[in-house]
């Protein structure tokens, strides 16, 4: 899976690369408008992370360029510009998702995971991981072909973990994933514990291995 990170902030781009590389993505960085335009012209990517504020041009123009060439690439806008106008415009031009800075890498990783799935599997989307099978369309989960019933939040949480295999997910990141921007208004993420506990219990009762590990003091990890 190839990912192009169009981001002028070198430090941030490097960090994203560091996080995603471990997820077996191949990452490239473009720091300017020209650089990005060249790379898009030459190579194809599975997913492009696009910052709207770029030296040498506007990210929106790159988006139009991509769409003109009808490239079947998942595009996620990452920008400090978190105005709804920009989101609406970006999504209208053809971006698949939008993530406002600052974000957790785990959130980005989950979004990339979901965008690539949607694009490449034509929405007939089933994720198989050992004994666990997730039907994204039907929103059902089976363990060893035995269906288990998850609440929407637990289903969401499971996808988030699978999109961030072997990563430590802080409670903050999980809370933010579940309640969006509202999460950082609270200083207590204890409610996550209940969701994780329920998810873990349901999976294990159906005979799944224990992939969900607690990382003391920090959060959780989907270990595989």
């Amino acid at each position: 899976m190839k990912i192009l990170i169009i981001e002028d902030e070198q430090a941030l781009a490097q960090d994203i690369v560091a996080y995603l590389s471990e997820q077996n993505y191949i990452c490239e960085i473009a720091g300017t408008y020209q650089e990005a335009a060249e790379k898009i012209g030459i190579y194809t990517y599975d997913c492009i992370l696009l910052d709207l504020m770029l030296p040498g041009g506007n990210g929106m123009d790159l988006l139009s360029l991509l769409k003109q060439e009808n490239i079947e690439t998942g595009i996620i806008i990452i920008s400090a510009k978190n105005a709804t106008e920009d989101i609406v415009q970006g999504l209208r031009i053809g971006a698949d998702d939008y993530l406002a800075k600052p974000f957790h890498h785990s959130e980005l990783s989950a979004r990339i995971h979901s965008v690539i799935r949607r694009k490449q599997f034509n929405n007939s989307n089933v994720i198989q991981q050992n004994e666990i099978k997730i039907d994204l369309l039907g929103k059902t989960v089976t363990v060893n072909n035995q269906e288990i019933t998850l609440t929407p939040k637990e289903f969401n949480l499971l996808l988030f973990f699978i999109g961030n295999k072997n990563k430590v997910l802080s409670k903050g990141a999980i809370a933010e994933h579940l309640s969006g921007d509202l999460a950082d208004m609270f200083d207590n993420y204890d409610f996550i514990y209940a969701h994780v506990k329920n998810l873990k219990k349901k999976l294990q009762e159906a005979g799944s291995n224990n992939y969900l590990k607690t990382v003391y003091g920090t959060g959780y990890k989907w270990e595989i």
Binding site: P102, F103, H105, A173
Partner: peptide, 24 residues
């Protein structure tokens, strides 16, 4: 942007293998 970098660095630090409980 600096906030985004800060957040991203913390994220990465969390992923380091030999992190102690105190550090985390």
């Amino acid at each position: 942007t600096p906030l985004a970098i800060l957040k991203s660095k913390i994220d990465l630090l969390l992923q380091t293998k030999d992190i102690t409980q105190d550090q985390s």
